[in-house]
């Protein structure tokens, strides 16, 4: 074993000795980091899944341009050709009055009987306008709608723009709440980890005094405590991942209606390996930073 590896192994042994020497305080620190990361992870999962749902919806986004009553088929085709030249438009399809009625009948099912009494078809002809890549978003919808608005022969335009904007606001709100909670909880966690390490420093004051006597450097004295914080943080991260996975697998399927409401039928997914690693890194960072803060305050004269 190289000298550096032997030194690291020695530091790790010291860190683990420190954790096992006061299991209760270490356990509290790990649990606190775990709870913080569970909340942070839950919000991150919700936001990630909502964004994924928006991606799925984006593929189906289109603009419907309703045509003026009585517009001749030739004029409709001319208008469709014009619309196809608008920037952001990928496809244009003419939906005749008859096709619109047929779709309506298919959509309402048994309620179609109500249409039997109508003397004429009340539905207008329309253009179904598909969006090019890069325009399947709220801003894309707005730009395409703006360009189409005012074209002669178009009486009205509808798109999912309002819905998309509302959903984006919801995602931003969830993300904001998540970040706010994360910052508050991270600060609280840092305090708890720092106090845990400070207690460890105080309980080993005699040992540290002797280490100073024999000429131990600050790095030699401090590294085991930093590793202790790092290990506690990583353990908190593992705990959070296990808890989140358990909730995802065992509890979430029981809330099908709520999921349908929020995710619109998109199957929720768990963290990818890199996202899970990021959560572990966040835990380790919390532990390390807490330990560093404790050491800094303890070494202050």
């Amino acid at each position: 074993m190289s000298r550096a590896a032997a030194q690291l192994a020695s530091f790790l042994r010291a860190a683990l000795r420190g954790i096992t020497a006061s299991p209760l305080t270490s356990g509290i620190a790990i649990a606190t980091i775990g709870v913080t990361l569970v909340l942070l992870g839950a919000f991150a999962l919700l936001v990630a899944n909502m964004e994924r749902m928006l991606d799925d919806v984006g593929d189906a986004l289109h603009v419907t341009a309703f045509l003026e009553e009585g517009l001749a088929p030739e004029a409709q085709r001319e208008l469709a050709s014009k619309a196809a030249t608008v920037e952001g438009v990928a496809s244009v399809r003419i939906v005749s009055k008859d096709e619109a009625l047929a779709r309506f009948r298919g959509g309402v099912g048994r309620g179609a009987a109500l249409l039997e009494g109508l003397s004429e078809n009340p539905l207008p002809a329309s253009l179904e306008i598909g969006l090019a890549d890069g325009y399947r978003s709220a801003s894309g919808l707005a730009r395409v709608s703006g360009s189409l608005d005012g074209l002669p022969g178009i009486s009205d335009l509808t798109s999912g723009q309002d819905w998309v904007e509302g959903y984006l606001r919801a995602i931003a709100l969830v993300r904001g709440i998540g970040w706010g909670l994360a910052v508050i909880l991270a600060l609280a966690t840092l305090l708890i980890v720092a106090n845990t390490i400070r207690l460890a420093v105080l309980s080993r004051r005699d040992e540290l005094e002797i280490l100073a006597l024999v000429g131990a450097s600050r790095a030699y004295v401090g590294t085991p405590f930093l590793l202790e914080g790092l290990i506690q943080g990583a353990a908190g991260g593992v705990l959070a991942l296990l808890l989140l996975y358990a909730v995802f697998r065992l509890v979430l399927p029981g809330f099908e209606f709520g999921l349908e409401l929020v995710l619109g039928g998109v199957a929720p997914r768990f963290f990818t390996a890199s996202e899970a690693a990021l959560l572990l890194a966040a835990g380790s960072g919390l532990g390390l930073f807490g330990a560093a803060a404790a050491l800094a305050s303890e070494s202050r004269p």
């Binding site: 100073a212 006597l213 024999v214 000429g215 131990a216 450097s217 600050r218």
Partner: peptide, 12 residues
């Protein structure tokens, strides 16, 4: 300083 004190102590 803090970095130079331990090496001195190792000689004592």
């Amino acid at each position: 300083g803090p970095a130079a004190t331990p090496p001195l102590r190792r000689r004592i």
